[in-house]
């Protein structure tokens, strides 16, 4: 049985207080991860936690493990070097929607294609939060952000479609409302061998909440996401047009495929 003390032990000494705004989903998602890690007995001596730059990217800074932080979008190249040189390490990447949807998009695609054996937890707060609430590739169409004052005229990425077609072997999506399901999916992802992605829709009250939803109340942000959330089986009943502004939640799929061990691997000639 896990308890709060065993989560506390997993936090880097001296790193608190954290810098997340009150009511931010990042803190919740860090908790989901800690609970999942506890329940699957993830060994923090064997863990490398990787963050890029942004609010989400701060999560690894608070974990008492080896960690990388501070460069925007290059989380998967780091992870690739780590997993190739020391495949026995567990690597968990915490990435923002900007980090994997925009600047690091190609790395995300290539790592999925290679089936790199890492877990990517995407905190999709639907905007570039750290930089002040600009539109991101996952911001729903029509919404106002700091750089879409007349509404977002771009189409959004569906990270499931992206990851799946690129070759990821595990994908789940939840929101911060569904903490138990999100935690269970992180556990499955940690136990999965191959490129596993757990996307969690998350409220950013400070920016997305205020600019796109007109409310900085964390619960309003959560409710807004939950109102638009449907299950995978619900989604089967809807047309493409009807699904357009929905968030489809669930464990999408899990597959087995050989994991990446280098672009060419030596085979002794017989």
């Amino acid at each position: 049985m896990s308890d709060i003390d065993s989560y506390r032990e997993k936090l880097r000494p001296g790193s608190l207080p954290h810098f997340f705004c009150p009511g931010c989903g990042c803190g919740q998602i860090m908790n989901f991860f800690l609970q999942a890690a506890d329940e699957v007995d993830l060994d923090f001596d064997n863990l490398v936690a990787v963050g890029g730059v942004g609010c989400t990217a701060r999560i690894p800074v608070y974990l008492d493990a080896d960690a990388l932080h501070g460069i925007h979008g290059r989380v998967l190249p780091w992870a690739t070097g780590i997993k190739l040189h020391k495949p026995q390490l567990d690597v968990v990447v915490f990435a923002g929607d900007g980090g994997v949807g925009a600047i690091g998009g190609n790395h995300f695609i290539q790592a999925a294609r290679r089936n790199l054996d890492v877990t990517v937890i995407v905190v999709n707060n639907l905007n570039f939060a750290m930089t002040g609430g600009q539109v991101s590739p996952t911001t729903p169409s029509g919404l106002n952000t700091m750089t879409t004052p007349y509404g977002n005229r771009e189409e959004r990425f569906d990270l499931y479609e992206l990851a799946h077609s690129a070759g990821a072997t595990f994908f789940s999506r939840w929101n911060t409302f569904h903490y138990q399901q999100a935690t269970d999916s992180i556990k499955k992802a940690l136990n999965h061998e191959g490129f596993s992605v757990v996307e969690i829709l998350s409220q950013c009250p400070t920016h997305f909440g205020r600019y796109a939803l007109g409310s900085g109340e964390p619960t309003r942000g959560m409710e807004w996401i939950e109102e638009k959330s449907i299950t995978i089986s619900d989604a089967h009943e809807l047309t493409g047009e009807e699904k357009k502004d929905k968030f489809v939640l669930g464990d999408f799929y899990s597959e087995e495929r050989p994991v990446f061990a280098g672009s060419t691997v030596y085979v002794e000639e017989k």
Partner: peptide
Amino acid sequence: FGEGYHTLYSL
């Protein structure tokens, strides 16, 4: 990495 030193490498 992986030797228990729990090092943070931040820019």
